[in-house]
Design a protein around this nucleic acid. Structure first.
Length: 223
DNA sequence: CGTCTTTGACCTGCGC
DNA sequence: GCGCAGGTCAAAGACG
């Protein structure tokens, strides 16, 4: 599949002017080398900052946050909150879910450009691939209540991972957002969620505590 | 009965 | 070309 980019710069050496697109997220203290595949199969989560493609719809305000990181923590401003709430609201959950959201890695697809769509019945028709963004959250439950309604359409065993990967699609009519959920082998407490696409509708089941969770949220950089 | 999950089959891309 | 792995489809079953 594809590489994933981090939303945020991980160090001064990986600035937008001089980054290494192939640095895997496994270099962080959260994903080990054996878990390269984690939620992405052959893909890797990369942790570099791409300051280029402003037209890519996925990063919006997040990309402009390059200057906001302080030390190991990346500060999230109001726009980021809104964006996260819209797109990455997997961080919210029911009170019983027992999630540690203080350790969140966010990554995105390196190649949000054109590619053929696997499994597409319309043979020969090129389809624009939506950018993908990967999260990892520490949670005891696989399915987090993010306010959207999802329908599971597949589950696959993943190489080098004892946990299967689940595929979900947003059930809202006309909304084509997908997400993949997988638990890491090396750390069973970590759930990796990969989003593809953007919701075209408001959250269907607004979660009261989401704002509170985001306020507590820190996004760590690996260095 | 409607909605959702499960699961085997199928398709596609990629590496060798 | 072949095999492998990821991604999707769709029929069948479960559940409320």
């Amino acid at each position: 599949m594809e590489k994933y980019q981090m939303f945020f710069p991980c160090s001064s050496s990986t600035s937008s002017a001089n980054y290494d697109p192939m640095i895997p997220i496994s270099a962080t203290n959260n994903i080990t080398t054996d878990d390269h595949h984690m939620g992405m199969g052959s893909s890797q989560v990369c942790n570099y900052f791409d300051g280029r493609d402003q037209s890519s719809n996925g990063l919006l305000g997040l990309r402009s946050s390059a200057g906001n990181h302080v030390g190991r923590e990346v500060l999230i401003n109001k726009d980021h909150h809104q964006y996260l709430q819209q797109q990455y609201s997997d961080l919210t959950t029911t009170a019983s879910a027992n999630i540690n959201i203080n350790n969140v890695i966010v990554g995105a697809d390196q190649n949000p450009h054109e590619a053929t769509n696997s499994g597409n019945k319309n043979k020969g028709e090129k389809k624009t691939r939506k950018p993908k963004y990967a999260f990892q959250t520490r949670s005891q439950v696989d399915i987090l209540d993010d306010g959207y309604r999802w329908r599971k359409y597949g589950q696959k065993a993943v190489k080098n991972n004892k946990f299967p990967r689940s595929y979900y699609r947003c059930t809202y009519q006309g909304c084509n957002v997908k997400k993949q959920v997988q638990r890491l082998t090396k750390d069973e407490g970590i759930v990796v969620t990969t989003y593809e696409g953007m919701h075209t509708h408001p959250i269907e089941k607004p979660s009261d505590n989401f704002e509170h969770i985001l306020n507590q949220m820190q996004i760590y950089t690996p260095f």
